[in-house]
Design a protein around this nucleic acid. Sequence first.
DNA 1: TCGCGGAGAGAACCGGCGTTCCCTAGGGTA
DNA 2: TACCCTAGGGAACGCCGGTTCTCTCCGCGA
Lengths: 193, 193
Amino acid sequence: MDREAARDLALDAAEELFYSRGIQAVGMDDIRGLSGVSLKRLYQLFATKELLVEAYLERRDVSWRRRLARHVEAFEDPGERILAVFDWLGLWFGEPAFRGCAWINSYGELGATSATIAAQARKHKLAFRRYLRELTAAAGLPEPLADQLLLLAEGAMVTAGIFATPAPAAQARAAAVQLLAAAGRARPAVPAE
Amino acid sequence: MDREAARDLALDAAEELFYSRGIQAVGMDDIRGLSGVSLKRLYQLFATKELLVEAYLERRDVSWRRRLARHVEAFEDPGERILAVFDWLGLWFGEPAFRGCAWINSYGELGATSATIAAQARKHKLAFRRYLRELTAAAGLPEPLADQLLLLAEGAMVTAGIFATPAPAAQARAAAVQLLAAAGRARPAVPAE
DNA sequence: TCGCGGAGAGAACCGGCGTTCCCTAGGGTA
DNA sequence: TACCCTAGGGAACGCCGGTTCTCTCCGCGA
């Protein structure tokens, strides 16, 4: 097993365990047990647990945003793309392994203690906000609307996690429809010509 | 120092430390150091750390909702009361000690491990949702609107915590205004007579 | 066949923390 | 003054988990 393969196995196990149980509840030995990568190798790949956590959040950030983008960009219409974000959240919330947002959870757990984890959470949420701003800009809608959509999405993630139901995605979608309509009335996306 | 006073001191210290640093980052000895209540007494009052955490969340739930209600119920108009919720969030977010929502943070930290903490978070959020539903019902607005307002509020708490800015409260308030207007158009709160 | 270098398993080390225990001091009482 | 009883401080205990170390084994080259 070469270095790359071991790294992937370790990160797979880290993602599975850290996400489902929380970071502090998982020991390096648990990672070793699930991944089959020996402790020695683990520490060659990630000098400390904190670095492993960082790599886990980094990799998940990339894959999370890619999964979202794939779903959203199947649509052509800019307005539909915005709503597709909430539809995708609903799909995500419905997955059996769903346990809330990894970054919100990590921030709650270690944001006060670890500056790097707080920074990772900020980075991820900034990237998500930037994406929403791109989507609203493409639809000719103002930036403040994107920030409101961000609040709906974050609220849906939290509520879906704590209440363990995917319903908040549909609620957020409905609210987004209202906000889009209101913004459309103020500054129509497609001028009447 | 009698039993009641010691209990209050211990809970004051617990709230201060657990909220600012996270639960697992605080040891019983830290509680003792800040409260001045000896370990022996602490364990007479709370047989385990978990019971202390539970008592902390319980007490904070009561005081958090009382603070909110005090601010909201200074207004008479049902519509104003709803918006007052978001104004109060802005005041809260602006406090120097603000570090996000204690229940969202606790859930992220221990929700997967401790069933009682997950239940506390659910209980608190259910109570908040019930309050929002009461406010919208009093304004003659439909229940789904309350659930959407809940998403805005939760999203604002998370975003204000991670980005360390009170701005999300105003963004959520603006979105709430739009949603209220839309709901008012559909089913006017004050019929035209 | 004989070393040798690297890798893995798991024990060992060490610090932290929840919980318990011991020792002392102080105050009330005969 | 002598004796208890209580409370508090803080050391002690046991466990856990991050990190390191050691021992063994395997494959490869001379």
